Computed example of a mutant assay.
Amino acid sequence: MGAYDLPLAELRGYRPQIAEPADFDEFWASTLAGSRALAEPPTATPVDAGLPRIAFADVSFSGFGGDRIRAWLSRPAGVDEPLPVIVQFQGYGGGRGLPHEHTLWASAGYAHLMVDTRGQGAAGWGSVGDTPDPHGSGPSHSGFMTRGILDPHEHFYTRAMTDAALAVDATAALPGLDPDRVIVAGASQGGALATAAAGLHDRPIGLLSDVTFLCHLRRAADIADTDPYGEIRSYLAGHRDRVDQVFRTLSYIDVANHARRGRAPALWSAALMDTICPPSTVFAAFNRYGELGGDPSKAIEVYEFNDHEGGGAFQVARQLEFVRGLLG
């Protein structure tokens, strides 16, 4: 598809009004406190992945409701001092995969925590997952967008965003990590979870958020032609009397609201032909990033002729440069 959304000049100044519940901060403070009260220490079991220059560990930590979340921890082998850590989250439907799939950040000299997404990892396009989601929901459309859609306490992404914030907690107790040098990262759904973690937690010193999902959800449901946003439309096509209730729930997970609370310097990306995460929704969140978090530095790379793959390897090169600049 060619360009279909707002032109770039308008996107750079696009700051729509986005519904934010009055109890947004109270809701998230209570949600995180409840899960932290149930948390148990993380574990890290060394794994031989056949790559002698990288040390791997199979990690388990407490997420939402005390549920155990899986992750892979990697770092350069033979390095003893605590290292800066990139905490990375998965795209929609993907899982943590196998340890040898994730070597970039350890190769660059950093630690890397590749976090599984509860209930995902069998999408067919990507890596397998290893973390169940033991919580049910009311009637929903296939996929994850409408699981628990009538109550923010029950929504799937309330659990996933809590997991993301508690993954940052876990860096303080895992071996070989410097909890004062944590960078959160991800693309699409992973970018949404990373941005939420950057807003919910005061520890991250950097954010890498690419072609970010879950932004400006009312507009996304209106204009995106594909799933996952299409899941919202399909649900509401049947439940015609629940529009207001659905979008109230979604306002608690809307990344545009989480982005306002970001405190860390941030590098984002957007693709102008992205049919999954329309660029106007990404810019709606990016342009609000840090409003309530002290106005940290931020930049966004724009890929004019790309779809949801975004900048690919070009963006990775930009991220490596950005991280070097943050860490010195």
Results as ranks from 00 to 15, higher is better:
residue 204 P to T: 06
residue 249 T to E: 01
residue 202 D to L: 15
residue 155 H to S: 09
residue 219 R to F: 08
residue 161 M to E: 14
residue 165 A to P: 10
residue 212 T to F: 00
residue 236 L to P: 09
residue 188 S to C: 02
residue 228 P to E: 07
residue 217 L to S: 02
residue 253 I to M: 06
residue 155 H to W: 14
residue 196 A to T: 04
residue 164 A to Q: 10
residue 210 D to G: 12
residue 227 D to P: 13
residue 191 G to Q: 00
residue 239 H to C: 08
residue 246 V to E: 04
residue 230 G to N: 08
residue 217 L to Y: 00
residue 247 F to Q: 08
residue 231 E to L: 06
residue 246 V to N: 05
residue 214 L to D: 05
residue 200 L to H: 09
residue 229 Y to A: 01
residue 168 V to P: 13
residue 179 P to V: 13
residue 173 A to I: 07
residue 238 G to C: 03
residue 234 S to M: 07
residue 220 A to Q: 06
residue 222 D to F: 14
residue 236 L to R: 04
residue 182 V to M: 10
residue 235 Y to N: 02
residue 218 R to A: 10
residue 226 T to D: 11
residue 226 T to M: 10
residue 249 T to A: 02
residue 199 G to W: 05
residue 238 G to K: 11
residue 174 L to H: 06
residue 232 I to H: 12
residue 161 M to N: 12
residue 213 F to H: 13
residue 248 R to M: 10
residue 175 P to R: 07
residue 164 A to G: 12
residue 232 I to P: 05
residue 166 L to P: 09
residue 230 G to Y: 05
residue 237 A to M: 11
residue 242 R to Y: 05
residue 245 Q to C: 01
residue 172 A to V: 00
residue 170 A to F: 14
residue 202 D to V: 11
residue 208 L to Q: 05
residue 212 T to H: 00
residue 170 A to T: 06
residue 168 V to M: 14
residue 243 V to N: 04
residue 225 D to Y: 04
residue 187 A to E: 08
residue 203 R to K: 12
residue 221 A to Q: 15
residue 215 C to G: 13
residue 230 G to T: 12
residue 173 A to M: 08
residue 163 D to N: 11
residue 226 T to F: 13
residue 239 H to D: 03
residue 242 R to V: 08
residue 207 L to P: 04
residue 254 D to L: 03
residue 248 R to Y: 15
residue 171 T to F: 13
residue 173 A to H: 03
residue 215 C to D: 06
residue 157 Y to A: 05
residue 193 L to V: 02
residue 192 A to W: 09
residue 179 P to K: 10
residue 185 A to N: 15
residue 220 A to N: 14
residue 247 F to R: 06
residue 244 D to M: 09
residue 174 L to C: 14
residue 156 F to C: 12
residue 253 I to G: 08
residue 171 T to Q: 12
residue 193 L to D: 01
residue 206 G to R: 04
residue 190 G to A: 04
residue 245 Q to E: 06
residue 169 D to S: 09
residue 181 R to V: 09
residue 190 G to Y: 05
residue 171 T to P: 06
residue 246 V to Q: 02
residue 211 V to W: 00
residue 211 V to Q: 00
residue 182 V to R: 01
residue 206 G to T: 03
residue 190 G to T: 09
residue 209 S to G: 00
residue 243 V to E: 14
residue 212 T to I: 05
residue 157 Y to I: 03
residue 189 Q to T: 00
residue 194 A to M: 02
residue 208 L to Y: 02
residue 167 A to G: 06
residue 173 A to S: 14
residue 232 I to R: 14
residue 226 T to A: 09
residue 237 A to G: 06
residue 207 L to D: 10
residue 186 G to M: 03
residue 208 L to W: 01
residue 199 G to Y: 05
residue 199 G to L: 05
residue 164 A to H: 11
residue 175 P to D: 07
residue 225 D to P: 15
residue 161 M to H: 08
residue 176 G to S: 10
residue 224 A to L: 04
residue 236 L to N: 07
residue 195 T to K: 11
residue 171 T to C: 13
residue 202 D to I: 00
residue 254 D to P: 08
residue 159 R to S: 07
residue 246 V to H: 02
residue 228 P to G: 03
residue 248 R to Q: 13
residue 205 I to T: 01
residue 162 T to Q: 04
residue 191 G to H: 00
residue 234 S to Q: 07
residue 161 M to V: 07
residue 212 T to E: 02
residue 167 A to W: 15
residue 181 R to G: 11
residue 228 P to M: 09
